[in-house]
Design a protein around this nucleic acid. Structure first.
Lengths: 103, 103
DNA sequence: TTGATGTGCAACCTCCGAGTTGCGTATTTG
DNA sequence: CAAATACGCAACTCGGAGGTTGCACATCAA
């Protein structure tokens, strides 16, 4: 799935993860309000939110003159699935090694 | 956990994820052999392996003139924990999924 | 010993991303 | 209406990452 690429790319930046955490902590949040809590500009926050939206991790909702963002955690599961697959493939290899080691 | 930063950074690149998958698929793998399977140089593969090692996802083992790499999947769990926390803050169902996933 | 194979280090290039500033526009409020 | 607030778009800087080439060093095989 190509969506995993955007998810991991979105989570690769520490500031963006902090943005995601902040969105997750509240039912809804605007870019301006979040910029007031972080040491970066509102436009920087907007870019992070755009990246998170591209990954499907966040959803914007226009309300009058302000845009409120909400967490949509579904893509996180896809990323976790990817990691679980890698780990599972390793478990198989490990099991075979153990089997051969015991003879 | 500061290690989570390196893990997500390591997983952010598609080529590097492919490298990690290749390492996970075999019990051990060298940079040169992997470079023969990928459309990039051995040095590029070495850089990816270095990034994965920095994240604790891979472990090198010198054997004669070649360096074999092995998967160490533990940090993947830390990353999954991070995602589970974010999701849990939004929806408790994610945490329950994690519980079942880790057994 | 000689040649081939495997690795590591360093310089270099290119491109993308994080962050900034500036400006234009829509919406609320007085 | 005018002022303030919230947003979006565009241009710009700058540092880092992915990738390459080149070279030096170690190790195995003939």
């Amino acid at each position: 799935m190509p969506g995993v690429d955007d998810v991991f790319a979105a989570l690769s930046d520490p500031t963006r993860r902090e943005v995601l955490r902040s969105v997750a902590a509240r039912p809804e949040l605007t870019a301006s309000r979040l910029a007031g809590e972080l040491p970066i500009t509102r436009q920087a926050v907007a870019k992070h939110l755009a990246a998170l939206q591209k990954a499907g991790l966040v959803e914007p909702r226009r309300e009058g003159r302000e845009t409120k963002y909400t967490l949509t955690p579904a893509p996180l599961m896809d990323a976790m699935d990817w990691m679980a697959e890698v780990g599972a493939e390793w478990d198989v290899r490990l099991a075979r090694l153990m089997e051969r080691a015991r003879g």
